[in-house]
Computed example of a mutant assay.
Amino acid sequence: MVSGHRSSGDTEKAVRAKLGDAPVRHEQMAAVANIYRAAAAVRQHFENSVLRGVELTWTSFVVLWVVWIWGEMETRRVAEEAGISKGTLTGVARTLQGRGLMARSAHPTDGRLALLALTPEGEALMTDVFPQFNAEEGFVTGPLNDDEVLRLADLLRRIVVQVETCGEERRLELLDGQDPHPRRSGRRPKG
């Protein structure tokens, strides 16, 4: 579906050649493959440029961004907004706490819950790094004019809404109402 060193066009031609007349929705496959390729390319560019200088990963930046924009939040809400698991958030938050960029505190009314907030150092970092980050957003969308950027944002937003509003129902339909199998790393079980 996705190839790292070949162009999107080359990959699409190879898929058409391989699958021939199989009933495949080539345009939709190309769209999803290019969403993935674009996301991976953008993430890698940001991590190797703006974020590397401040020793942040994409995920740690997103966690900082969410808390910077929305203020102190429950950890489960931060994970939801960042689009990551609670387990991933735990590790990222610990790293950011260790760097003095984020503080964790107990929820005032429910001791089972925890809150995350940026420290003054975290606020200062985001204030400093965001203009650089935004400049790179301009760089990666540089080939598009303003109308195309707005159209792209709208089209991607529609895809996100489709998955968020109808994805669960579709999953249940595809799995005949069953829970999905647990995720595996791809390694065969020992034995």
Score class of each variant (00 low, 15 high):
Arg187Thr: 09
Asp147Gly: 05
Val160Gln: 15
Pro108Cys: 05
Arg77Ala: 08
Leu96Val: 08
Gly53Asp: 15
Cys166Ile: 12
Glu168Phe: 13
Leu150Val: 10
Arg112Leu: 11
Val67Phe: 01
Lys86Phe: 05
Val42Leu: 06
Val24Glu: 05
Trp58Asp: 01
Glu47Asn: 07
Val15Ser: 04
Arg184Asp: 08
Ala153Ile: 11
Val149Trp: 00
Pro120Gly: 10
Thr90Ser: 10
Ile159Val: 14
Ala117Gln: 08
Leu51Asn: 00
Leu155Lys: 08
Ala124Asn: 08
Glu169Ala: 15
Leu96Tyr: 03
Leu116Thr: 00
Thr57Val: 10
Leu51Glu: 02
Gly100Ser: 12
Val62Ala: 05
Leu125Val: 03
Ser85Asn: 04
Asp110Pro: 01
Phe139Glu: 07
Gly111Pro: 13
Met102Gln: 06
Ala17Tyr: 09
Val15Ile: 15
Val50Tyr: 00
Arg184Leu: 07
Arg16Cys: 03
Ala14Val: 11
Ala14Tyr: 06
Thr57Met: 05
Asn145Asp: 15
Gly177Asp: 01
Tyr36Val: 15
Ile35Phe: 09
Arg187Trp: 08
Arg37Ser: 11
Ala93Ile: 03
Ala17Leu: 13
Asn145Cys: 07
Trp70Ala: 14
Ala17Gln: 14
Cys166Tyr: 14
Leu150Glu: 10
Arg188Pro: 06
Met102Ala: 04
Asp179Arg: 15
Thr109Met: 14
Ile69Ala: 10
Leu172Cys: 11
Glu168Lys: 14
Trp65Tyr: 12
Gly71Tyr: 04
Gly191Thr: 10
Met126Lys: 03
Leu150Pro: 04
Leu64Pro: 01
Gly122Phe: 00
Leu89Trp: 00
Arg76Val: 14
Val66Gly: 00
Leu118Ile: 09
Arg77Trp: 06
Pro108His: 04
Asn145Ala: 09
Gly138Lys: 05
Ala31Thr: 14
Val32Gly: 02
Glu164Lys: 15
Gln28Pro: 06
Gln162Ser: 15
Glu148Leu: 05
Pro182Phe: 00
Glu137Cys: 15
Pro108Ile: 07
Arg37Gln: 13
Glu121Ser: 15
Val163Ala: 12
Val149Lys: 12
Glu148Lys: 07
Ala106Trp: 04
Val54Trp: 01
Gly9Met: 12
Leu64Val: 04
Pro143Tyr: 02
Val15Leu: 14
Val67Gly: 01
His45Gly: 03
Met73Trp: 01
Arg158Asn: 11
Gln97Phe: 05
Pro120Arg: 13
Glu72Phe: 00
Arg77Ser: 09
Leu96Ser: 02
Leu175Asn: 09
Asp147Trp: 03
Ala135Phe: 06
Glu55Lys: 13
Glu72Tyr: 01
Leu150Ile: 08
His181Asn: 13
Glu74Ser: 07
Val2Ser: 09
Val66Gln: 04
Asn48Gly: 14
Gly111Tyr: 13
Ala79Leu: 00
Val54Ser: 02
Leu150Ser: 07
Leu125Asp: 01
Pro143Trp: 03
Arg151Asn: 12
Arg94Met: 13
Arg94Val: 08
